[in-house]
Design a protein around this nucleic acid. Structure first.
Length: 627
DNA sequence: GAGCACTGC
């Protein structure tokens, strides 16, 4: 059967060809991501961006199959650490980060006649930047742009591109019935469980996907469901198997949501998930969605130089996306754990990331692209004057800009590295230090730039895992988390470990092995950018020496000069710039250390939750500060 | 003795 985009292909094609820019609203199941590029194949070279690596690879693979070709021939892809393209490639699926990097070397994007921005509604910072660059570029040369979005906010795209026409392609989805609470609720987890129990008792078999704001609520819900399990069974209702799903979960646990439940009994999966299941992970077999209408979001406060973690209502677009997860295979139902009047009050679309993140890195990129007046750039959405001024100040402090706001040679180098500016400074500072300082800093920076390297064990194993970690990383308990990363890496990377031993090592220490493989790739990329030989003989790997710790931590101080807190007579650590009190996060190796033991601490991140917590904390001696 | 949502080079 033809996909909606195929049914209307003539109309869509002639429309795209006769306009410089087209906004295409394609609902899920319309086939836009696979079909639109195929329609345009005859009309020049195409780049199509995706927010995620897996999506870029999967789509390219599928379209190559559909066109009876091999990936890398006509249809290719390019993501970090993996690309399949050739001189024959006419259509390339890329991550948006990758396209931005390409644009550094080729400002005019001469390789492409058409650029398609897919999933534009997700509005990552990177899509926003690309959109701004494309508009500028269109002012200089002929370039066909297609903005593809799944939701409502098409008007803002249209307005930005001189009122570009909006095309609408229906999707193919099954109907989803919406149900609301009649009265407000106070305990979210309790009401979620009651809802799930009700579905289980009254609805035909089918799995349930329950959206909760975060890990804490999810773990509570899973435990709750386990506790009431025996009673459910004793009443003869189907067995409910509760499963958590969030990004920092070990991959083996994540895979469980794709597996069938063993046993012959009637059963259903109840998957308690965060936003991962809204975009990144598609769980098959879901017939019912339970939506708390909430999500957890990190908000950067430029005035305070810290980020906060907030629980906020989702947008109507996002609630719609969540409920759509119930209608992928057959008609479904969505139970919204809020009132219909609350739904009306929700914002129409999610606030874009650019409005709530630190723009230091985006600004460095703009400067690298030669944008002098960043305040008046063609922002798709302006991040705000204050936010920009703060970021400019940070770049000035780091030495990336001079007093006139021009990119310095240092800033130029920083912008070439696939790292946030601060970590770039750390490595550039490490180059001038003693032998091996750069090796060590690269290992640590690689760990820092990969998410979820350390998994958090269940509470009953917490102490034992901590002990195991500090037993083999014995200098980390004095010097802190950066040293911990390096020592863990040294143990993981040493050649005497076989594949199985590496696996066991990771399991015992709750280290995410998938993340460690990623660390290895990042490390390799950084080493080659700094022209360090890729250890031909891995026994030559440089393991941490205690003597080099001061130099290493001092390099991090160059990257994070403001993230320094000094021990005061009242036994608290106060941030030098603001005088505020910080405390190492409970997940830090320095958390348990007596406060008076550290004359000063340095951290890479400051997050305000119930208190101000410093993350990735290191001990610092006052004598290191003068140099 | 606390919890991190998600993603890119």
């Amino acid at each position: 059967m033809l996909l909606p985009v195929q049914v209307h292909s003539d109309e869509i094609l002639s429309h795209i060809l006769s306009h410089d820019t087209t906004i295409l609203i394609g609902e899920t199941g319309s086939g836009k991501s696979t079909q639109i590029p195929q329609l345009l194949l005859k009309y020049g070279k195409i780049a199509i961006t995706q927010p995620r690596r897996v999506a870029a690879i999967n789509l390219a693979t599928r379209v190559a199959q559909e066109t009876n070709s091999r990936v890398g021939d006509t249809i290719g892809y390019s993501v970090r650490f993996d690309h399949r393209t050739s001189s024959k490639t006419r259509c390339k699926y890329v991550t948006d980060g990758m396209l931005l990097r390409e644009m550094i070397n080729d400002k005019e994007l001469k390789n492409y006649d058409t650029v398609i921005i897919d999933e534009a509604h997700e509005r990552t910072v990177l899509t926003d930047l690309i959109i701004g660059f494309l508009k500028e570029l269109q002012g200089r040369r002929k370039l066909r742009i297609v903005i593809m979005s799944a939701t409502l906010n098409a008007e803002s795209f249209s307005r930005f591109f001189h009122n570009a026409p909006i095309l609408h392609v229906r999707g193919r989805r099954f109907p989803v019935q919406q149900l609301y609470l009649r009265e407000p609720c106070d305990d979210l987890v309790e009401i979620a469980i009651r809802c799930v129990v009700q579905i289980n008792a009254g609805e035909p078999l089918g799995d349930v996907l329950c959206f909760l704001p975060g890990q804490e609520e999810i773990d509570r819900a899973v435990t709750f469901l386990e506790r009431i399990g025996p009673e459910i069974r004793s009443r003869g209702f189907p067995v409910m198997v509760g499963m958590p799903l969030y990004a920092s979960l070990p991959p083996s646990e994540q895979l469980k949501v794709f597996q069938r439940i063993k046993g012959k009994q009637q059963s259903r999966k109840i998957i308690f998930c965060t936003n991962v299941a809204e975009t990144s992970i598609t769980v098959p077999g879901v017939k019912y969605v339970v939506d708390s209408g909430l999500r957890r979001v990190k908000v950067w406060r430029h005035a305070l130089n810290l980020s906060t973690l907030l629980t906020v209502p989702v947008s109507r677009a996002s609630a719609q996306q969540r409920s759509g997860r119930a209608g992928r295979e057959c008609a479904g139902k969505c139970y919204r754990l809020f009132q219909e009047s609350d739904f009306e009050k929700m914002p129409a679309v999610t606030e874009p990331e650019i409005a709530r993140c630190d723009v230091t890195e985006p600004l460095l990129l703009l400067k690298r692209h030669g944008v002098d007046d960043v305040l008046n750039w063609s922002w798709f959405e302006h991040p705000g004057k204050e936010s920009i001024l703060q970021a400019l100040g940070e770049l000035l402090l780091l030495g990336a800009l001079d007093a006139k706001g021009s990119l310095t040679p240092l800033g130029y180098r920083m912008s070439s590295l696939p790292l946030p500016p601060q970590l770039g400074v750390v490595l550039i500072a490490a180059e001038d230090k003693q032998k091996h300082c750069l090796d060590t800093c690269i290992d640590i920076v690689a760990c820092l730039s990969v998410e979820n390297v350390l998994l958090s064990p269940p509470w009953e194993q917490r102490d034992i895992v901590n002990e195991r970690r500090t037993a083999i990383c014995h200098r980390a308990s004095r010097w802190g988390d950066l040293v911990l990363y390096k020592e863990l890496w040294d143990h993981y990377f040493r050649t005497s470990l076989t594949g199985d031993e590496k696996k066991t090592f990771c399991q015992e220490l709750y280290v995410n092995q998938r993340a460690m493989r990623q660390v290895q790739k990042v490390r390799g990329q950084l080493r080659s950018l700094f022209r360090l030989h890729e250890d031909p003989d891995p026994t030559a790997h440089h393991a941490l020496e205690t003597e080099e710790i001061p130099a290493v931590i001092t390099c991090f101080l160059s990257g994070y000069p403001k993230n320094l807190a000094i021990l005061h007579p009242d036994r608290s650590h106060k941030i030098v710039t603001t005088g505020e009190t910080v405390q190492p996060h409970p997940a830090s190796t320095l958390f348990t250390q007596r406060k008076t033991d550290c004359p000063a601490i340095l951290y890479t991140e400051y997050v305000y939750t119930s208190k101000g917590y410093a993350r990735n904390v290191s001990r610092l001696e006052l004598s290191w500060l003068s140099s």
